[in-house]
């Protein structure tokens, strides 16, 4: 099994005909994702990457049975795209764009709650259930199926850790990108709940960073989890008041420090490692 997406996930790509959308549609098809259609209001009726292009998500749902959407439209149009996908009945909406206004994200998350949809991101690399389905922009070759559930804020750092897990013989059930923005649809807590319920996930890896308190909130749930959790937290060397690339990665007024996250996670029973290259061996040890 896997969480959130699997081989029954039928994907519509919003903004498929743009540069990024087009490239990653190709990559997802190569990976074996069931991409069934794309949308583009100006290119409806055309065929792109061998797939039909529709004017609306609703058509992709009705005509091609799409049940999930991945969004590659520019940030200014991201809110409209997400509302359209949720309204059309997509149960999973992956939002790749960065620089989505936070007030737009708040409304998207409210609407998703109301309609029972799962929004991943914005500003996420997406998610992948190795061997089954990939909705995202991560490289295809670094994952393999296995027992580890991975959830991270940051793309490249999670690739580093996923590759190290794979090299150590530890495949993944699903790897989820929470997204680097202050407001995102699925936080560590939500994803860990899914991993706890998933029978094939035997251990979880959480890749966090400074800023916000999603790690502290996750710690509350980790206390009750039956599965072991290994955490790596980035941003030890970051000074307060400076935004470290991600809109969410900033230590403000003493909140969101690495130390408070580490203490909360350790108190909850998680193994917190100092450096990213220590994750795989820590997982191996816990799985015995």
């Amino acid at each position: 099994m896997a969480i959130i997406i699997n081989d029954e996930t039928r994907v519509v790509v919003q903004g498929m005909t743009g540069n990024q959308g087009s490239f990653h549609t190709g990559q997802m098809l190569l990976y074996g994702t069931k991409v069934v259609a794309g949308t583009s209001p100006s290119k409806a009726g055309q065929v792109h990457q061998g797939l039909p292009v529709f004017a609306s998500v609703r058509e992709a749902v009705v005509e091609r049975g799409a049940n999930a959407s991945i969004i590659f439209v520019p940030a200014a149009g991201a809110k409209d795209a997400a509302f359209e996908a949720i309204d059309a009945g997509c149960s999973v909406v992956v939002m790749i764009p960065e620089h989505v206004p936070v007030q737009d994200s708040i409304l998207i998350v409210e609407y998703a709650r109301f309609k029972g949809a799962k929004v991943i991101g914005p500003n996420t690399f997406g998610l992948i259930s190795p061997g089954k389905s990939k909705m995202g922009i991560m490289p295809n070759h670094i994952y393999k199926p296995g027992p580890v559930g991975l959830v991270a804020r940051s793309g490249t750092l999670s690739y580093e850790i996923a590759a190290a897990l794979t090299n150590a013989g530890l495949g993944q059930t699903t790897a989820v990108g929470m997204g680097g923005d202050p407001v995102v649809g699925q936080v560590f807590n939500d994803v860990l709940h899914e991993f706890e319920r998933d029978p094939e996930t035997k251990a979880c890896v959480l890749v966090g960073e400074i800023g916000g308190s999603a790690e502290e909130e996750a710690a509350e749930f980790i206390k009750t989890m039956t599965k072991p959790v290994v955490a790596y937290l980035a941003g030890r060397a970051a000074p307060p008041g400076k935004r470290m690339g991600h809109a969410g990665a900033i230590i403000e007024r003493g909140r969101g420090t690495l130390e408070s996250k580490r203490m909360a996670l350790e108190a909850a029973g998680a193994t917190v490692v100092e450096m990213p290259w220590e994750v795989a061996s820590a997982v191996k040890k816990l799985l015995g």
């Binding site: 940051s154 750092l157 999670s158 790596y232 980035a234 990213p276």
Partner: peptide, 11 residues
């Protein structure tokens, strides 16, 4: 990547 850059400083 932002996370990777932070991890690099930490290293």
């Amino acid at each position: 990547g932002a996370g990777m850059a932070m991890a690099t400083l930490d290293a």
